[in-house]
């Protein structure tokens, strides 16, 4: 081979990678927690702070854990999708109110609807840290054994729900 072709070859490889790179989102960081047991917590519930919300209560169920906050604009975007999903009854969505004001969270749910059977309160963001949350909304699919199977970073959209979440939930249910 002509050694003068070397720079061109290197360049072509770089261009291919850059082309692929255009399709990727550099801000989306895959979670190392997928495939691992969901971190335990016991947090007070939003509607009844005396009661505790803990993943241990949900053993044997497939469920979604959705981190949200009233101050988060992405949560507003995904909210109708969650409402729709909750109405369909395919899978329960448990909420985790992340670093929020109690009253504002209540008002927000009242105004836009509440898709969650139970909402936990993560005041200090510690549960968020244990789950590797770095921006709300984030949603985790957790299986019957309490293992995280999928993590959605950013708002859920109908497409992701139909193509990723629901098939995965079905598969996990049948296990």
């Amino acid at each position: 081979m002509n050694r003068f072709l070397l720079p061109l070859s290197i360049f072509i490889v770089v261009v291919i990678f850059l082309g692929v790179g255009l399709k990727l989102n550099p801000r989306e960081i895959p979670s190392p927690l997928v495939g691992k047991v969901a971190p335990d917590f016991s947090q007070p519930q939003l509607y009844d702070p005396a009661k505790v919300f803990s993943p241990a209560d949900l053993k044997g169920k497939v469920w979604l854990l959705n981190f949200w906050a009233s101050w988060c604009s992405g949560c507003r975007t995904e909210h109708p999708v969650l409402m729709e999903l909750a109405k369909s009854g395919e899978v329960p969505i448990y909420g985790m109110d992340y670093k929020d004001q109690h009253d504002e969270a209540m008002t927000w749910l009242k105004r836009w609807g509440n898709p969650y059977p139970v909402v936990g309160v993560d005041d200090a963001g510690r549960v968020g840290i244990n789950y590797g949350v770095y921006g709300v909304p984030e949603t985790y699919v957790i299986d019957k054994q309490g293992v995280i199977r999928y993590k959605q970073i950013g708002p859920l959209d109908p497409d992701t729900v139909a193509k990723k979440i629901l098939p995965l939930v079905k598969q996990l249910e049948s296990q």
Binding site: F4, F11, L18, G19
Partner: peptide
């Protein structure tokens, strides 16, 4: 904006690719 990225990438490929090809052809 991905459209912009695509444009510059195509431009990059033409300008740099073209000159490196010219280089490979002429340099020997």
């Amino acid at each position: 904006d991905p459209k912009r990225g695509l444009f510059i990438l195509a431009f990059l490929a033409v300008v740099i690719g073209g000159s490196l090809a010219l280089y490979a052809w002429r340099a020997p």
